[in-house]
Design a protein around this nucleic acid. Structure first.
Lengths: 332, 332
DNA sequence: TTGAAAGCGCTACCAG
DNA sequence: CTGGTAGCGCTTTCAA
């Protein structure tokens, strides 16, 4: 471990003051070309790198934003990160990621850690935190990602259009000529469950169709739950000829049930999922599914944040809703 | 945005010196119970949180380690992160993750960023960096993760036992009575390709079987490549009755080919994968596959790093090889 | 049991 | 075009 070089050392070796070294680096005031060259040479030779802690302490800006997510294993979040980086890196900002597991304690701990580290802004997909927790951290611009109600006191909210996403899938099923479209959703009030179910109902209503309540089932977001629910629906006297599912795991379970009954997908039964997890394209038949445009969402978060990091009067908090897209494969 | 409170403010409100506030917080010297209580009360009331930048500048320790990975979308890395956090958080360290995309430029940029941010240690899964790049950052303890040769100058190396992993799968196929075991691997010299193929050859050799070179194919790490390779193997006069694959995508392609030929898996053809991606359990039949114990690897990285963050004489660099495990599902 | 003050490495104000 | 120096918020020695 080599002791790092500091600016004073560079200055004395180059025969100039630290002020000059600082300005060579920042370009915030003109430096004679000759001096500039010497300084840069010394920097190069010594392998000098400025200490960002000291910079941050002095300038009160760390050029860093934090991203707090519940589960990095969910590929949605890495994609969000990528989208953020696409707009933040060119603006000179780095992003640090915190993986919380979704518990309030962990979220709180990371949130506090980020603010004490003096990040310039935070994007958070909060699951456990309440309004008060968030309010306690308003020292730094905040953008909320995904869940919850918009609340101007808590800063910007960026979310995807869950309701519109399912509606899109259901419209697709209707356009393909399916007569009886069922819906298998997650537990009521959990995450986006309510919005997704609303999307199903809205799409039917817009097509002038009645919603048959026994074609709507609420269960868990798992493959097994999907299979069980599908078996019940398909065992009826008048089974549906299409099922829109609230996520891909449920849809894969529906595929299992169809296979077990010898049904051909999509002819006997069309199936749509939601999320576009990796398995959606790997399963047979490939799953037609709704995609959260994660990178788009990441970009929107970054773009919401950016003016608040610099501008004096960044304008009032906003809610931004990003449209989803339908990926067509074989299942519908 | 509220201006944050600093220690001086806490001190004056509590009617004590900053020294005392500091010691209340750090516990590094006794403070009268009464003073302690007042100070804590003021801290609570003002919502004071110490500025870690200033702390780090002063103490030269940030209690932070960096993790540099090529692709957070690969679930292996989030799992590594989790393993690291399991040992680092209790020791008081936070981990910041950098997602590079695997290019040398990005890796270099993040590595520099981490060192200028004064992280106390770095774990890196380097893909593009060369020896020299790494050597330029030896101001801070480094643990390499995954690829490359062990090199004491570059610090610790933690990797999984790729060779042993495939050998495990092949032994499993042999034990299940399969006579002709083929192998479909990735491009030679790419990533872990060579070690994995070596594992296949070793397992056969240890069982006293000859390796038939035309049962070994090198192709791309994709589903399509896997299907194509399997079609060729299965079209032979003496087709194999088992195929060990170098990753799960290839194996899923093999499953496609088997289905197309009307073969029953695992009876007509047994298949094993490598990685245990999410789809491995979602595909039908479920894929028997080799798992990199990512969390284990993360823990090992953290445990290698920890003594180097504190001890004066942390001992020589080491290479640590973590065993893989076989997950049995239906395909073999 | 407590305080005063130096100083970590840097930026930016003031001066020349 | 260049330097001196105060001070960001904290820890830690020295002194009481």
């Amino acid at each position: 471990m080599v002791r790092p070089v500091n600016m004073t050392e560079v200055a004395s070796r180059a025969g100039v003051s630290v002020t000059t070294v600082s300005h060579v680096l920042s370009g915030r005031r003109p430096v004679a070309e000759a001096t500039r060259a010497t300084v840069l040479a010394v920097i190069e030779q010594l392998g000098y790198r400025p200490n960002t802690l000291a910079q941050g302490l002095r300038t009160r800006r760390t050029m860093t934003v934090g991203l707090v997510v519940p589960d990095l294993t969910n590929p949605f979040y890495p994609a969000v990160l990528q989208g953020m980086a696409d707009v933040l890196l060119p603006a000179g900002y780095h992003t640090v990621v915190c993986n919380t597991g979704g518990s309030r304690d962990e979220e709180l701990s990371f949130l506090t850690d980020l603010t004490t580290r003096q990040v310039d802004g935070i994007v958070i997909a909060a699951f456990g935190l309440n309004r008060k927790d968030l309010l306690a951290h308003r020292e730094v611009p905040l953008v909320r990602l995904g869940g919850g109600r918009f609340d101007a006191d808590l800063g910007d909210l960026v979310r995807s259009d869950d309701e519109g996403g399912i509606a899109q899938a259901v419209r697709h099923l209707i356009e393909r000529g399916h007569r009886r479209v069922a819906y298998i959703g997650g537990a009521a009030h959990a995450g986006p469950s309510d919005q997704r179910e609303a999307g199903y109902r809205r799409a039917l209503a817009e097509d002038g169709r009645p919603v048959e309540d026994d074609l709507v089932v609420q269960t868990a977001y798992t493959r097994d739950a999907g299979r069980a629910a599908a078996e019940r629906l398909l065992g009826r006297d008048d089974p549906p000829d299409a099922i829109a599912c609230a996520n891909d795991l449920i849809a894969i379970g529906v595929l299992d049930a169809a296979r077990a009954r010898g049904l051909t997908v999509p002819d006997d039964l069309a199936v749509t999922g939601y999320d576009d997890i990796e398995a959606a394209s790997l399963v047979t038949p490939g799953l037609t599914t709704v995609v959260n445009p994660a990178a788009e969402i990441g970009r929107a978060c970054a773009e919401s944040l950016l003016p608040r990091l610099t501008a004096d009067e960044p304008g009032p908090p906003r809610e931004i809703v990003i449209a989803t897209t339908l990926t067509r494969r074989e299942s519908a």
